[in-house]
Amino acid sequence: MSVINIEHTETTPKVIFNKEKGVFIIEGKTLPENVNQFYEPLFDWLNNYVNNPNDETILEIKLEYINTASSKAIFSVFLKLEKIIENGGKAKIKWYYADDDEDMKDVGEEYADVIKVPFEHIEFESED
């Protein structure tokens, strides 16, 4: 399966989807000009992956900023993992947030409430 490896920009996150290495990461800022344009290729990739996933899929999310349009897109990404679980597979979301970022902590908890995928909430020390 192809590997997705996108460098971060000021308004889009770094994304790695690598089935062979079992690495799934979305990290940085997500406030793209055109949300659909950025996320469509990721959905396409995930749709393929869901049909033949690894034994366990761990998606690591480490966001600095998320705009509301992106929060819908990220929700759709999480739905793909939900699909894996519905199909009898294993999946988990690791949600990272800075210790001084109460808002990002809340966002993670809200996702965990509406997505049927186990969440692990992980606090890390803010750099500043």
């Binding site: 659909n36 509301t68 349009a69 819908k72 897109a73 809200e110 509406v114």
Partner: peptide
């Protein structure tokens, strides 16, 4: 949470959120 988990993005990318 309700808006997040229902409906699609509008054509212009607005999420109503």
């Amino acid at each position: 949470k309700k808006k997040l988990s229902s409906g699609r993005l509008s054509e212009k990318g607005g999420a109503g959120l």
